[in-house]
Amino acid sequence: MKFKIFFLRLKHIYYIILAIVFIVLFTIFLVSRKSIETFNIFTENKIIKKYDVTGDGLKDNIYIKINNNKYSIAVKSKDKIYTLQPSHKLNSLGTYKSYSPLKLILTDVSRDNISELFTQSSENNTNLQHLFIWDKTKFKDILHTTNNIIGFIDVHNNKTPKIISSNFNNNDLVFSNYILVKDKLKPYYCNYPSNFIGKDTISTFINYIQSLPYSSNTKPNDLFHESGKISCFNIIDKLASANRKYVFQDGSFSDSDYDKNGEISDVKWILNFKSTSNLVKEDCKNMSVKLFLKSIGDSKSQFYFKIYSINVISN
């Protein structure tokens, strides 16, 4: 039996090493771009232990408490406790209501491996929105608005992460756009089209859900992707048959996938509604609706992002 012996030239070894490095880096990129924000709703005292929010490489304890019906948040890092102090311009983390509990979102928009803390809540029928970042000695509130939607784009690709604070009002979504630069929030201008990340789809969907149960027979077909239309309609029928009234409270969104050109192709939205029984007015609670949207067709067309999945969570 003859054996063949292959000799690798030096340049071939270089090519192999480069190929291995490329595969490893590409794998890391795919894993990182698939990660999503952590979204939590708090209706009672709670401790979170999974995230490093102070940059020491250790998981911190995040305490969410309700005292005298008002929310407070503190972080225990090693042997120190840091209380999140809202800006005096909007000096509250909100009051507890069964239909509008505090929402906490943790995500790394600065790409420094430290999670920023975003809160959504309400007080006296006013929405409250805060962004807390760690500045090496304390948590600083660098965004405080009365908007009712917070969103994140380009967090998991190779573009600059962006924060979008929005308000759903008069059937429209108005965006305020920011990037985080050296622990400071910088506004940027961008005239996003009406169908950007599903703005038109979400506005129409909110209005439709708020019209239930009376409009259950006139579903807005154009909002839904063919692949998930039947399952989405089944969920909507269940909401309509519950004989409840739904009023939008607040929401959040983030992009979750991109096409070969790096453009956003998939978006996750979370919309929170006040759900009240039409038979027993005291029966009032929060209902969260998770929507998954996918881009389809002409990017300039109406409802370019269509809903292909709905998941309803009631608290």
Rank of each mutant, 00 (worst) to 15 (best):
L84G: 03
F132Y: 13
A242G: 11
I310F: 03
I206N: 06
D141G: 11
K11F: 12
K268Q: 04
Y208L: 06
F39L: 11
A242C: 08
S275Q: 03
I197A: 03
I296C: 04
K97M: 03
K76E: 12
N234T: 02
D135W: 11
A74K: 14
Q210H: 13
F305I: 03
Y304H: 03
S275G: 09
I133F: 01
Q85S: 12
F305G: 01
K274N: 14
H130G: 06
F6M: 07
D172Q: 13
F118L: 00
V267N: 00
K285F: 11
K238A: 12
D141N: 15
I164T: 06
Y96L: 15
K281D: 08
N157P: 06
K103G: 14
H88M: 11
N234E: 14
I270P: 02
N113Y: 14
S166K: 05
I206C: 05
A242V: 01
V109F: 15
E282P: 08
I62C: 00
S314E: 14
Y15H: 09
Y15I: 10
Y178P: 11
S314W: 03
N125I: 08
A242K: 15
L223C: 05
K274E: 15
I48A: 08
F26S: 04
N272V: 08
Y15T: 11
D237R: 04
S203T: 13
F205S: 00
